[in-house]
Nucleic acid binder design. Structure first.
Lengths: 219, 219
DNA sequence: TAGGATCCAGCTTTGGATCCTT
DNA sequence: AAGGATCCAAAGCTGGATCCTA
């Protein structure tokens, strides 16, 4: 499972992926990565450590395991599995939000099958929790699609500034200020193009928390 | 309009009621009641002062102006009309929530016509704001009814403990802990009767704030 | 610049607790 | 006990700000 240079080979199938994921349960994060620099210095690193540990192959704007159709999401949780944050899904194409369709959206593709790897935060210690492989049920897909369409519809009607993070039952749109000085072109009122902060789709923690407990839940 | 003992006679019709209500605009609360005892000692008193000032006649479980079909609600707001609190409507009959019907509910009756008297809080001063006479539009009634039925349905299915204040777009159910030690009998899971804190229906401030600005709004 | 994931100040909401009058 | 309304600590949510790697 490990080649000469310390890399993990890609999993051949879902079973192998899940065996690896389950084998990581209980492992301290410090065993998978360098956690020196303490606390503040781990943004995004846990996700990358998990990708390496599981043998993810995806690059750029693709899934983490393209052959298996699986997206990997590392999610920080409390000991009771309550997520500490909402989960980023993907950026939104602000400039032509009016022609987006659910069926060929990145949101739908990314969420069609997700391997959730909880990282349990307990005081200073962080451990891998129980992995969950999830594909949305039909009912869940309907609600996600409705959220998606509500948000894009609102952009089309009132422009991006009329959209708030209150919209959407499970999916919401929020600033994705990777570079807080960045500006993107977006649809404003009256079809004008305006500059605004880049935004992304996020899953509310009420929903991701429910998935971790029961993958077919509808909170 | 004032009889010998300082009482205000009841208004004969809606016009008279509204004239009085509008005449109170800008009046400091200290002119209508004793505000000594400062701040903490005014719970419910502003509402009673307003009843007296307008000549309300209702007693017990009835409307404030039974002949006019009007319920009076005194509501604390910020200078920009944003309500400081949700608004209590009435208690819920916890013991037989399963047989309640919207059409003969107290919620519907109390909300069929409301005279809103905002009390504008600005620093230490409190003044009467602009009165609003409101009756729900057909659309608003539909949403209120849907909220009511969602909440009562949830009680019927999962018992009172399964109902949270998150339910309902405009109407919500919350503890009505007038006496925090009080307990009421309510439907629990499996149709058992359990003891619980008394609860009441409240209107969210998102909704009451919208009514004050535009009585036909659907926030 | 894109992907991946936290961090956090400040505001809002929940779930009661309190207070007064009839 | 019911009607009327306010107070508040703690939890949750919004709207960004930050940080790292490729």
């Amino acid at each position: 499972m490990v080649c000469d240079d310390g890399c993990v080979h890609p999993p051949r199938d879902l079973d192998e992926l899940m065996s690896r994921a389950r084998a990581l349960e209980g492992v301290a994060l410090s065993e998978l990565m360098d956690v020196s620099g303490l606390a503040v210095r781990t943004k995004g690193k846990a996700g990358e450590a998990m990708e390496r540990a599981l043998g993810a192959t995806g690059v750029g704007a693709s899934l983490d395991f393209p052959e298996l159709g699986v997206e990997l999401k590392t999610i920080p949780v409390e000991p009771d599995l309550k997520p500490r944050e909402s989960t980023f899904v993907c950026a939104v194409a602000l400039a032509h939000a009016d022609r987006e369709e659910w069926d060929d959206s990145w949101v739908k593709r990314k969420l069609s099958r997700v391997l959730w790897m909880p990282i349990v935060h307990e005081a200073a210690l962080r451990r891998v929790g129980r992995a969950v492989l999830w594909a949305p049920t039909e009912e869940q897909t309907c609600i996600l699609q409705a959220d998606f369409e509500e948000i894009l519809g609102a952009i089309a009607i009132g422009g991006i500034e009329g959209v708030t993070a209150h919209m959407g039952r499970w999916l919401q749109l929020r600033p994705k200020a990777a570079d807080s000085h960045a500006r993107a072109l977006a649809l404003g009122p009256d079809d004008a193009l305006i500059e605004t902060v880049p935004r992304g789709f996020y899953l509310r923690s009420r929903f991701t928390g429910a998935i971790l407990r029961d993958p077919s839940a509808t909170p």
